[in-house]
């Protein structure tokens, strides 16, 4: 099993940390992982993306030109990465951030209204965990338990009290993701 994922959106949406938590969950599943950010002078509001590869085998290139899954959280990201999804692959997009949804018919398209859900519950910080939950629902490469164990490893102890809230958001994300084609 090898899953090549691009997560892309605005800086500040938690794109990089979502990738990191996913990579940690991969480690908990005893898999090989790589996390390659597009680093630069990006700040909140700029663009941010990260390539995460989770695999049973050794990972050769951390850079790939086609992805199994693209998680796109703003319109420019969708336009950039929709053509780079492998046929039979998956796109997950946030309903609030994407005005023109993906059009390809040879891939699976999922919509998650995570921005709305986060606003509704008054906790915008769990936006990325809602999306992560949606992803794990459609591409179950790790269990919620792995993610929670990964969070314990990834976060400093003083933040461990926030883990239950994140776990809840992941489970909520699994419920609100919808297939669009």
């Amino acid at each position: 099993m090898t899953e090549e994922i691009i997560i892309s959106g605005f800086g500040g949406q938690g794109v990089l940390s979502m990738g990191k938590i996913l990579a940690y969950a991969g480690i908990m599943e005893d898999k090989q992982v790589s996390w390659m950010p597009a680093y630069g002078p990006e700040q909140r509001g700029g663009t941010a993306n990260v390539t995460v590869i989770v695999s049973d085998d050794m990972i050769s290139s951390p850079i790939v030109s086609h992805y199994d899954t693209a998680i796109v959280l703003n319109q420019p990201s969708l336009e950039k990465f929709e053509p780079q999804v492998k046929p039979g692959g998956t796109i997950i997009y946030d309903g609030h951030s994407i005005i023109q949804p993906p059009k390809r018919d040879d891939i699976y398209i999922y919509r998650i209204d995570a921005m709305e859900e986060a606003a509704r519950t008054g906790n915008s910080k769990v936006f990325n965990m809602l999306v992560l939950g949606g992803f794990l629902k459609v591409r179950p490469i790790a269990t919620v338990e792995d993610v929670v164990r990964g969070l314990h490893k990834a976060l400093p102890e003083r933040h461990h009290k926030l883990i239950p809230m994140n776990e809840e958001a992941i489970r909520r994300g699994m419920k609100i993701i919808r297939k669009m084609n």
Partner: peptide, 10 residues
């Protein structure tokens, strides 16, 4: 190089 420096692995 910047890529090996910036990327994360196990």
């Amino acid at each position: 190089d910047g890529m090996i420096g910036q990327m994360m692995e196990k």
